[in-house]
Write a protein that binds this DNA or RNA. Structure first.
Length: 859
RNA sequence: GCCCGGAUGGCGGAAUUGGUAGACGCUGGGGACUUAAAAUCCCUUGCCAGUAAUGGCGUGUGGGUUCGAUCCCCACUCCGGGUACCA
C-alpha cells in the first residue's frame, strides 16, 4: 500500500513508517535471543513543560542511527527511553497552580513522546521507565534501604540555604551572590544558612574504588580527569599539635610534612569545634564576631574574597612538635571545615595562601626548603613569594640536608614513633547530601522510633554497625527501615505543596500518613495501634532527583519485574550499556553518583560488573545562528517542530549530524539544510521516476559502470567505519558523493541502489523504508542486512602520483598502480614542468612515497 | 589562578595523523531549461598579480625539526568550557 506520489512527500511518508515501526515492533529488544547484543543508552530527559528543544534530537539522532545500523548488522539491539520525571519545575508549577505534579508530568511525558516519535526515534517503548512510577521508585527506595542497612547513609544537621520569603529550601545553584549578600535566584529575596536535618550518603567510602575504576573505562579523557579531580585524592599526613595551656590537641592534614619545621602558625576554620574552647577571653569578642560573619557567607563568597585574606588570632598557642616552639593559632575562613580536619599548619615560606596570610598579618616566615635560586627574593634575602617546589631541607634540625621527597616519609616516621602523626589519604569528595525538603520526590522508606523502642527492633531493619539517630522535636530518635513489602512507599496526597515556614517538607503536614505503628520484628506498618507494635513517625524528607536517574539504565533491562530490581539472568545477557551518549554537563555528578550506586549494588551481589558505563560519548551543543547559546531571552531558539514541518524529520536528522563532529559545539544555520533537502531529493529520484513508478534505468540485469561500482564500494567502507565511530558528518558527505555518482550513471542495478539506501537508512529511515518498499521489497529495511564492501572493487589500476620539487607541487600523472620507485621517478623527470624546474640544478635527493608522491630535491 | 578543549576560505566543516590544504555542503557569480517562477542541470568561487599560460602567498602569531608540517617540538596571542583558597 505504497502511497503513490512522484515527489518526496515527507509529511505523508514519515508518519506512515513511524506507525509501521511501532505496530511491527521493529525495534523491540528480545531477551535471550541468540545474537550478539548491543545496548545503546541515551541520557533520559526531564519532561519539562517547554517540550523538546533542538539539543535533545542531536544525541538522540546519533543513538537512533547507531541502533538502526547495529540492528541491520545483525545485533540484538536494546535502545530504550524513559523519563527523569521527579523535579523542581513541576513542583514549582504545582505550588503555583495547585495542580498535582503527577498530572503535569503525565501531560509533559505525552508531549515529549509525541515529539520523539515525530523525529523517527524508534525506541523500544515496551521498556519505558518513569522515575515517578511507583513500580519504578519502589526499587529506588529499595536501593536506599540497602545503603541504609549497609551503614552508607546517615543523618546530620547541615546548613542549607533557606529563603523565608519563598518559604523554601534552595539548592546552591538557586542562590545568587549579590552586593547585598546572598539572594534567591527567583524574586531576589534574602536567603540564609539554616541547619536542617539531612540524609547524607557516604560516597566518600567509595572514593578509592571510584578513582580506581576509572582506569579501564572508555571515556573521554577530559571527563575521566574531571572525575579524578573532583574526587581529589591526595596523600599526606595527619599531624597532631598540642595546644599550650590546654589538654586539647589540634590535628591537621598536610601534603607537605617535609615543611613541618617551617610551620610558624596554625589556622582553624571558623566552624571548628575547638574554637570556643581555646579562644582566650581578651580575643573572644573579635573571634566570635569573625566566626559569626564567616558562617553567613556562602562558599561562593568565601572563594570570591579569596584575594584578601582575613582572620583573627584566637589568643591560643600551639606547640610545633618538631621544633618545640610556640606558634599562634588563628581563625580564618580560608580554612574550610569540610576538608581534612578543618585546621592547618601554616607554612608561609612554602604555601602561597599561607604566605599571603602571613604577609597580611605580619607572621613569621621561615624557609625550610632550599630553592637553589628558583624563588624570588628581596634585597635582604627574604622570600617575596612562596616557594612550592622541591629541594633539600634547611633549618630543619636533624632532617636538614635531606631531600624534600624522602623527608616526607622520614618526618612521618619520626612523628609516628611519638604517636603524633601518621600517613593518611584525603579526598576532596564530600559525602552526598541526599535529601530535599520537597514534595515531588521519592519518600524515604524510613521510620523514626524512640531509643527504648529501637532496642526491640530486629537487626534486619537497622543500620547495625552505625545506628542512625537524630533529634526530632527535641527528642532522640532512631532510624528504622520499613519492611520490604511496604514498598513502594507512595507519596501521600497533601493540601499544599509548599514547604512549611520552618523549611520542613510538605510531607511533615501529612498527619495520617506521618504517624504510624511499626512491628519491631518485621517492619510492617499500621496506621492504628497494634499490640506489641511501636509508635513511629515517617521520614518527611524526599530524595533528590539524582536518585531516580542513578540506576534507570538497569531497569530498562527488566522494567516490569516486581520481585527484583533486575533479573540476574537478564542482567548477564544484556550487560551494561555498550555506549552511553549524553551531555558533558553530567560529567561529574550524575556519572559519579550512578557509578557509586552501581559499585554498591555490585558489592551487594545484585550486579555482575562493578562499572555501569564502559563507553561514554558526549555530544556537543547546538548554538543559535548567532553563535551564542540558545536561550529564550536571546530569541535564538530553533524549534525542531518548525524544521520538521518544512523539511521533514529525515532532513532534520541528517542536517543535525551534518553540521559538524558530534562532539563539537556548533552553530545552527537554517540555510544549510537546503543542501540536505537537495540530497534527499536526489536519493529519491534515483528510485522514483516522474510518473511515480521505479526509474527505468534501474533493473536487476543492468550494467554498473566500473567507476560507479568503485564509488559505491568506497562508500560502503567509509560509511560503515564512520557509523562505527559516530563520524556521521563525514559519512553523510561520502553518501553525497555517492548519490552524485549514481545520478550520473547511465544504468543502475537494483542491488546498487538498494545498497545505497541501506547505508542511508540509519540516518534517514523514513525515506529509506519507503524507497525500499517501492523497489518491491517487503518488511523493514533494517531486517535486510548490512552491505559488505569488496576490497577488490576499490583497487584502481592507475593512481595519481604527485610530483614535487623541494616539497612543492609541480605536477602529477596517472601511473599504473604497481609502478616502481624508479619508474615513478623517471615519469616525473619526463614531465615537462618538472624538467623545467630541475633544469640546470643538481639533484640532491629523490624521494618516493609509494602510490603517492615523488619529491625531487634539487638546488 | 589552575585544568581541559579549540583557532583552517564569505560560512559550517574535511584532510588516510608527516605527503596536492580547503573534500562535502551553504553562500556568491555566470549559464542552460522555462512565457515566468519553482525545481533541476552545467560552469565558477582561498587571497594577490596577470588577458592567459603561470607565478607568489596561505591552516591564530613567532621560531624549530624535516626532502616535505594543518599534523611533531618550543614560546606566545586570542576564544570557549570546567573549577574555585582542597592544606
Amino acid at each position: 500500500m505504497a502511497i503513490q506520489t512522484k515527489d518526496y512527500d515527507f509529511s505523508a511518508i514519515e508518519p506512515k513508517w513511524q506507525d509501521f515501526w511501532e505496530t511491527q515492533a521493529t525495534y523491540s529488544a528480545k531477551d535471550f535471543e541468540d545474537k550478539p547484543t548491543f545496548y545503546v543508552l541515551d541520557m533520559f530527559p526531564y519532561p519539562s513543560g517547554a517540550g523538546l528543544h533542538i539539543g535533545h534530537p542531536e544525541g538522540y539522532t546519533a543513538s537512533d542511527a547507531l541502533k538502526r545500523f547495529k540492528k541491520a548488522q545483525g545485533f540484538n539491539v536494546l535502545h530504550p527511553m524513559g523519563w527523569d520525571a521527579f523535579g523542581l519545575p513541576t513542583e514549582q508549577y504545582a505550588i503555583k497552580t495547585g495542580k498535582h505534579p503527577r498530572e503535569t508530568t503525565e501531560q509533559n511525558v505525552a508531549r515529549f513522546k509525541e515529539q520523539l516519535r515525530q523525529l523517527g526515534f524508534a525506541y523500544d517503548w515496551e521498556r519505558e521507565v518513569n522515575t515517578t512510577d511507583p513500580g519504578y521508585f519502589k526499587w529506588t527506595q529499595w536501593i536506599f534501604m540497602q545503603l541504609f542497612k549497609k551503614g552508607l547513609a546517615y543523618v546530620e544537621e547541615k546548613p542549607v540555604w533557606f529563603c523565608p520569603d519563598l518559604g523554601t529550601v534552595l539548592a546552591n545553584e538557586e542562590v545568587l551572590n549579590t552586593s547585598e549578600g546572598p539572594r534567591s535566584e527567583r524574586g531576589s529575596f534574602p536567603v540564609e544558612r539554616r541547619p536542617i536535618r539531612q540524609w547524607v550518603l557516604r560516597i566518600t567510602e567509595y572514593a578509592e574504588k571510584l578513582i580506581a575504576g576509572l582506569k579501564d573505562l572508555d571515556w573521554p579523557d577530559s571527563t575521566k580527569r574531571l572525575q579524578e579531580n573532583w574526587i581529589g585524592r591526595s596523600e599526606g599526613a595527619e599531624i597532631t599539635f598540642d595546644v599550650s595551656g590546654h589538654d586539647a590537641q589540634l590535628s591537621v592534614f598536610t601534603t607537605r610534612p617535609d615543611t613541618l619545621y617551617g610551620a610558624t602558625y596554625m589556622v582553624i576554620a571558623p566552624e571548628h569545634p575547638l574554637l570556643s574552647k581555646i579562644t582566650t577571653a581578651d580575643q573572644s569578642d573579635a573571634v566570635f564576631a569573625y566566626a559569626h560573619k564567616a558562617k553567613s557567607k556562602s562558599d561562593l563568597e568565601r572563594a570570591e574574597l579569596s584575594k584578601e585574606k582575613t582572620g583573627v588570632w584566637t589568643g591560643a598557642m600551639a606547640i610545633n612538635p618538631v621544633t618545640g616552639t610556640e606558634i599562634p593559632i588563628w581563625v580564618a575562613d580560608y580554612v574550610l571545615m569540610t576538608y581534612g580536619t578543618g585546621a592547618i599548619m601554616a607554612v608561609p615560606a612554602h604555601d602561597e595562601r599561607d604566605y599571603a596570610f602571613a604577609k597580611e598579618f605580619d607572621l613569621a616566615i621561615t624557609q625550610v626548603i632550599e630553592d637553589s635560586g628558583a624563588a624570588e627574593k628581596d634585597a635582604s634575602g627574604a622570600l617575596t613569594q612562596a616557594y612550592t617546589g622541591p629541594g633539600d631541607l634547611i633549618n630543619s634540625g636533624e632532617q636538614s640536608g635531606n631531600n624534600s621527597e624522602s623527608a616526607k616519609n622520614a618526618i612521618i616516621e619520626q612523628l609516628a614513633a611519638d604517636g603524633r602523626g601518621e600517613a593518611t589519604v584525603n579526598f576532596k569528595l564530600r559525602d552526598w547530601l541526599f535529601s530535599r525538603q520537597r514534595y515531588w520526590g521519592e519518600p524515604f522508606p524510613i521510620a523514626w522510633v524512640s531509643e527504648a523502642d529501637y532496642a526491640q527492633v530486629d537487626d534486619s531493619l537497622k543500620s547495625v554497625e552505625r545506628p542512625v539517630s537524630c533529634e526530632l522535636n527535641g527528642q532522640l530518635r532512631f532510624a528504622v527501615a520499613l519492611q520490604e513489602s511496604e514498598l513502594p512507599l507512595a507519596l501521600p496526597e497533601v493540601e499544599s505543596y509548599t514547604p512549611s515556614p520552618d523549611g520542613q517538607s510538605p510531607l511533615s503536614k501529612a498527619g495520617e500518613w506521618l504517624h504510624i505503628y511499626i512491628d519491631p520484628k518485621t517492619g510492617a506498618t499500621s496506621s492504628e495501634a497494634v499490640e506489641g507494635w511501636i509508635p513511629a513517625s515517617r521520614e518527611t524528607n524526599t530524595m533528590p532527583q539524582w536518585a531516580g536517574s542513578c540506576w534507570y539504565y538497569l531497569r530498562y533491562i527488566d522494567p516490569n519485574n516486581t520481585e527484583a530490581l533486575i533479573d540476574p539472568e537478564k542482567e548477564k545477557y544484556w550487560g551494561s550499556p555498550d555506549l552511553y551518549i549524553g551531555g558533558a554537563e553530567h560529567a561529574v555528578l550524575h556519572l559519579l553518583y550512578a557509578r557509586f550506586w552501581h559499585h554498591v549494588l555490585y558489592d551487594l551481589g545484585v550486579l555482575s560488573e562493578p562499572e555501569p558505563f564502559k563507553k561514554l560519548f558526549h555530544q556537543g551543543i547546538i548554538l543559535g545562528e548567532d553563535g551564542e547559546k540558545m536561550s529564550k531571552s536571546r530569541g535564538n531558539v530553533v524549534n525542531p517542530e518548525t524544521i520538521i514541518e518544512s523539511y521533514g524529520a529525515d532532513a532534520l536528522r541528517l542536517y543535525l549530524m551534518f553540521l559538524g563532529p558530534l562532539e563539537a559545539m556548533k552553530p545552527w544555520n537554517t540555510n544549510g539544510i537546503e543542501g540536505i533537502a537537495r540530497f534527499l531529493r536526489k536519493a529519491w529520484r534515483l528510485v522514483v521516476a516522474e510518473d511515480g513508478g521505479v526509474q527505468a534505468n534501474v533493473s536487476a540485469t543492468a550494467e554498473l559502470d566500473p567507476e560507479t561500482e568503485r564509488v559505491l564500494h568506497a562508500t560502503i567502507k567509509k560509511v560503515t567505519e564512520d557509523y562505527e565511530s559516530l563520524g556521521f558528518n563525514t559519512a553523510i558527505s561520502q553518501m553525497m558523493i555517492c548519490v552524485n555518482q549514481l545520478g550520473k550513471a547511465e544504468t543502475l542495478t537494483t542491488a546498487a541502489v538498494e545498497t545505497f539506501i541501506k547505508l542511508l537508512a540509519p540516518l534517514a529511515p523514513h525515506q529509506s523504508e519507503e524507497l525500499w518498499q517501492r523497489l518491491g521489497n517487503t518488511g523493514s529495511i533494517a531486517e535486510a542486512g548490512w552491505p559488505q564492501f569488496d576490497e577488490s572493487k576499490l583497487v584502481e589500476d592507475t593512481i595519481k602520483i604527485i610530483f614535487q620539487i623541494n616539497g612543492k607541487y609541480r605536477g602529477d600523472a596517472q601511473l599504473p598502480a604497481d609502478v616502481t620507485k624508479d619508474e615513478a621517478i623517471a615519469a616525473a623527470k619526463a614531465n615537462a614542468k618538472i624538467s623545467a624546474h630541475i633544469e640546470g640544478k643538481a639533484i640532491k635527493r629523490e624521494i618516493y612515497v609509494p602510490g603517492k608522491i615523488v619529491n625531487i630535491v634539487a638546488v
